[in-house]
Design a protein around this nucleic acid. Sequence first.
DNA 1: CTGTTAGCGCGTTCAT
DNA 2: ATGAACGCGCTAACAG
Lengths: 339, 339
Amino acid sequence: MTVSITDVARAAGVSASTVSRALRGQPGVSDEVRAQITAVAAQLGYTASRSASSLASGRTYTIGVVVPYIGRWFFGTVLDAAEKVFSAAGYDVLLYNLNSPEARKRFFTKLPVRKRVDAVLSLLIPDLDEESALRSLGVPLATTVGGPRDGFTVVGIDDHSGATSAVRHLVNLGHRRIGMISGASEPLHWTTPIDRRQAYLDVLAEAGIAHEPALEADGGYTVDGGERAMTELLAVSRPPTAVFAQSDEMAMGALRALRRHRLKVPDDVSVVGFDDHELAEVIGLTTVAQPVPEQGAEAARLLLRRLEEPDAEPVGQVRMPIRLVLRETTAPPSPHRSS
Amino acid sequence: MTVSITDVARAAGVSASTVSRALRGQPGVSDEVRAQITAVAAQLGYTASRSASSLASGRTYTIGVVVPYIGRWFFGTVLDAAEKVFSAAGYDVLLYNLNSPEARKRFFTKLPVRKRVDAVLSLLIPDLDEESALRSLGVPLATTVGGPRDGFTVVGIDDHSGATSAVRHLVNLGHRRIGMISGASEPLHWTTPIDRRQAYLDVLAEAGIAHEPALEADGGYTVDGGERAMTELLAVSRPPTAVFAQSDEMAMGALRALRRHRLKVPDDVSVVGFDDHELAEVIGLTTVAQPVPEQGAEAARLLLRRLEEPDAEPVGQVRMPIRLVLRETTAPPSPHRSS
DNA sequence: CTGTTAGCGCGTTCAT
DNA sequence: ATGAACGCGCTAACAG
């Protein structure tokens, strides 16, 4: 039925070991024999069984990638870029989509990647237990978000400085009542929302603006959540004239809420997002751009390097550049609304 | 180092086969022995090596999923839903992201899934050669787009009727000059753009409107392409008063082009999309909604059923319902512009 | 109900 | 440069 290495060996008139060596480009095979074997293998449509070869060699040539939710643009884009790097290097990708607490728990207790992968790239932030579960795999690890963590190569951005530039932009335009839509509800070990919030607080303080807790609302990193959060912010006694959303998706939700309230953007309310989502430009959203595919690609490359050069000192953390992109959702506050 | 089945067997004072049987829930093991083995295995942190077990059993408990481009919302969403079904059933997902001609070619010539998966779900439309390459794997196959194909379970929508409702909507509003932004440039075996275009032609004919080739433009299924296509359509001598975009992403590009031309939507030009993209509602885009995650989940379920009941007659094709969602980008043509 | 015996298909010695 | 023998960790068939 399926053609095995001995079939090729027989057809080529050599031994199985020679076929193995020839096909993997190892030395110790004469050029003519190698060419012959390659031809026979191609003709028979032979592919080595990954199961058998990894059982024999210990190498799986497979990378486990853990994602919190593929459907979200950010993760899809990172994954896309990372997969490209892995597959170009001859590695397969085993995908684990942990978008529910059950899926997440099942993954970390059963650890189906054990003995199945050469390395793990996690796009979700593991908590302390999950972190040590991953470490117990004994393979190189990488993450694309959050702060530095033991044993992991972390590729990310400087959230604080990104958020700083967003909020400062609003301050510079003359806004004094600046709201924030955050996404802090989730795991505690995720520093991103914390850093971005801290930047918000820091810029307000630096501008001499008193912080009002009522101007903060949680949008849970979704469009719908952003809409709800904006609605909340519009319900306070003196609503903000500008809003910093910690993600573009929440910013888009905010825009929808504003439209429903018949408020003009940016005339009545300015909005800044974070990410530079693929559709941010379509909408004309001012935002903080981060290099999303680049982060995935870089994390993948660093992981592969750790596999290829096990003895080299692993890279602990990489910070990618961010930049503010000015578009059409921010403007100075209109005179009759500013304080 | 890593704990194997014999370690567990020794620690539990039984043979390896008993451990194997006990852990896989097979009959022929007394309850007490099974409980004992389970406990020992848990304590040792034992997980069976997938490589070894699939080599021995022939089953891999892995599904290969082929995607043209994960970053695109549609595919990300389908994949998300499918993965959920697979992992809940105890299957792992091997992901192949074929977003470049080279990646695609490499995949279909080397077929890295050979002997590695129990089934394949392809979200891209294979051409005839690719189709037979997949069939040569000898495993159940499924697709989530396109027409029926031999040996594949196809889960999709009725593209013709979806597009019909979109174009008819424009006709009913009173439009006579209706443009189309298509995405036909890619593989020939993909029936979606063909069906949607045919519907466009049919509705025009049925309404007694002459077809003008100049009112069709290619948007390549991307936002940028949609923008270029719309720009082309605006450059013809008598531009359309309404446009049917074959995907929401192209419709969004069209909206951007219209805004750059200072044209009002829907006052000057109406736009209908196709898909009901996550952000379509944010933008207020009128569109044809298709059940995206449902298609992925259903395809996954049908594939698993074929694995579990190999003798049952496989389902050939499933058509999911579509519906027109009216929002804010369509309206009757304004008097001074309509013909 | 349990243990023994054989492979699954390859990579890897060690000879030659 | 090539082949023979062994083992990776597990499951399956056969005994008992």
